[in-house]
Design a protein around this nucleic acid. Structure first.
Length: 565
RNA sequence: UGGGGCGUAGCCAAGCGGUAAGGCAGCGGGCUUUGAUCCCGUCAUCGCAGGUUCGAAUCCUGCCGCCCCAGCCA
């Protein structure tokens, strides 16, 4: 399945408050060097669909404005970060279809410069070393309605602060013994301005800098300055950082930074029937509620990829949900729609019987096999055709037969004639059951004159079924997925884990697929006609392919059934 | 009760003073060798209340509701 398949993104150029702001900045001459954005993940977990929104936004902006987008790891907290995450994040961004060129950076690349700026703030009287414990600092920070109290060390002489800061760097003090704080305003209504911590002592091995540092900058002290160093013009982040913008700007104003980036905040993505917080995703993996970060039920990029969602569909989804500042939760059905739409154009059609029931065509010659021509994609003539073997013994879907057909059920039933796709019209003559009363076989007759699917007399049938030759079909395992959580908002009930969907995966070990599918490669997605889109899982073995259902086809019959009871 | 945001249909979202785009879902219909795709139709007066104006979702005022902030996390 080519990722280049046509999906028409909105014809009109995207329009949102961020693009408007950038256009204004360009018009005002504030972007002489071009528009530069960045995607700044912390390598403490795997990327998920929410990050995809940010990635598409940042890289998309760079593309639209002929600028560039940097990939920068926000690796300021070695206690939580790992190389595994650094690697997976790069793979995921690439898979999504974006390229940072030579612009791969790490906040840790700037540790030396950041430290120099810390000394600068100390020297200019804008920062001080605080000896208070973490508890004391918290205590003195005040509350939402009460101002904070100044630290007893707040007015320490600059020379003394500088000495302590250098000794902090030299590793003379224990973890947590002292911190460097900005001297701003302990009474500010914005708590971020109540003398925020700039550096903390932390003896942890950093994935990139190893053991060279005993102190690490906080996010606030690292982020804006890193943006400034890289010449980022627009630093786009999520709403929870809105309160940090005054601090972001404060650093840019008080330090001799090489550029003045602008921070703009947008609402992060929320999706129904899943969770998107890193903490929870980690918990799902660690506690074994899923099989790993790439479990097809996970909203992670790696999970989505294994599930068979094409990168192009994700990009389309991100473009269609838009960017705004209102908190919002997108229905997961919208994502599924985008996947279907993309795959409808791109995926080849095949036949597969998930839950087989045997059919014997009693008037079809024993031992005879015919190769019937089937279309690969009715919406794309260029996809060509293939041959599908037909024989006396076949399998059809158990759901496609009802001994006593319900109203509006127009598939196979005793005495009823239906079409076997690309093959013949067949009529059910007899129902064979086992001792338990379970239907084990259907005896049918076929109309030899209906080869290909149409009768010369022009008579119509109301249903067309997919089928597989019993002799030539290939056994397969098929995994059907449903939403990971039962309710739209797993949090609503108070205990999100209690909302886990016990039926989020259903394994069908006895499926049988057409021969052409035996050659499908891992990751390839095809449409199983009348059922959905299925992706070859890496668990596949030479004799037995394993398929993940990416998403089902729209099922009007299921809807009718549900409505009718 | 401090500070910062947000409120347009079930969901997402345009709109930037001139009389409510689009997509998803839903509903009705057409086409059909996938009950798929595709096609057509249908589906809101903009949180509330005042005010300004010839005219307001768009401006002003006051309410109401929701979200974020008191990590040496990001």
């Amino acid at each position: 399945m080519a990722d280049t398949a046509a999906v028409s993104p909105a014809d009109a150029p995207a329009r949102d408050f961020i693009r408007d702001a950038i256009r204004q900045d360009i018009a005002a001459g504030k972007t002489a060097g071009g528009v530069v954005t960045r995607f700044p993940p912390e390598p403490n977990g795997y990327l998920h669909i929410g990050h995809a929104k940010s990635i598409c936004l940042n890289f998309g902006l760079a593309r639209e404005f002929n600028g560039r987008c940097h990939l920068r790891f926000d690796d300021t907290n070695p206690a939580k970060e790992e190389q595994e995450y650094i690697d997976s994040i790069q793979a995921d961004v690439r898979w999504l279809g974006f390229d940072w060129g030579t612009h791969l950076y790490y906040a840790s690349d700037y540790f030396e410069q950041l430290y120099a700026w810390a000394e600068h703030l100390v020297t200019t009287g804008h920062a001080y070393v605080d000896d208070q414990t973490a508890a004391e600092i918290r205590e003195n920070r005040g509350t939402l309605t009460e101002a904070g109290r100044p630290s007893p060390f707040r007015d320490r002489p600059a020379a003394e602060n500088l000495d302590f800061l250098r000794r902090m760097r030299a590793g003379e003090f224990a973890d947590g013994a002292r911190v460097l704080r900005a001297r701003i305003d302990m009474a500010s209504g914005n708590i971020n301005l109540r003398d925020p911590v700039l550096y903390r002592i932390l003896r942890a091995r950093h994935p990139r800098t190893g053991d060279t540092w005993y102190l690490y900058p906080t996010y606030d002290f690292a982020h804006g300055q890193s943006d400034a160093i890289e010449g980022i013009t627009h630093s786009i982040c999520t709403l929870e950082f809105e309160d940090h913008r005054p601090l972001y700007d404060w650093f840019l104003a008080h330090l001799p930074v090489p550029s003045q980036p602008r921070q703009i905040e947008f609402a992060r993505l929320n999706l129904t029937h899943t969770v998107l917080s890193k903490r929870r995703l980690i918990q799902l993996v660690r506690d074994g509620h899923v099989r790993g970060w790439d479990d097809p039920r996970m909203p992670t990029i790696s999970g989505i990829r294994r599930r068979g969602y094409p990168a192009g569909a994700i990009r389309d989804f991100c473009a269609r949900i838009g960017v705004a500042k209102a908190n919002s939760t997108v229905e997961i059905q919208y994502l599924e729609h985008c996947v279907r739409e993309y795959l409808n154009a791109a995926a080849l059609r095949r036949m597969a019987v998930l839950d087989p029931i045997k059919v014997v065509i009693e008037n079809y010659p024993e031992g005879q096999v015919e190769e019937l021509e089937a279309v690969n994609n009715p919406n794309d003539a260029a996809a060509g055709t293939r041959k599908v073997p037909f024989g006396r013994e076949l399998y059809i879907e158990r759901d496609d037969f009802m001994e006593t057909p319900a109203p509006k059920f127009f598939r196979l039933a005793p005495g009823r004639e239906v079409r076997l796709r690309y093959a013949y019209l067949v009529t059910c003559k007899e129902v064979v059951k086992d001792a338990a009363g379970e239907v084990t076989e259907l005896v049918c007759t076929y109309d030899p004159a209906s080869r290909g699917g149409n009768a010369p007399d022009g008579r119509k049938v109301k249903a067309t079924l997919h089928w597989i030759s019993a002799a030539r079909g290939v056994p397969a395992e098929v995994r059907l997925y449903d939403h990971l959580f039962r309710s739209p908002d797993p949090d609503a009930g108070g205990d999100w884990l209690a909302d886990l969907n016990p039926d989020s995966v259903k394994v069908l070990a006895g499926a049988v697929v057409e021969p052409a599918l035996a050659e499908a490669r891992v990751g390839e997605v095809t449409q199983f006609e009348r059922q959905g889109y299925f992706c070859v899982d890496p668990d596949s073995t030479p004799g037995k392919p394993v398929f993940n259902r990416s998403v089902g086809l729209r099922d009007t019959w299921a809807k009718v059934q549900a409505r009718g009871g």
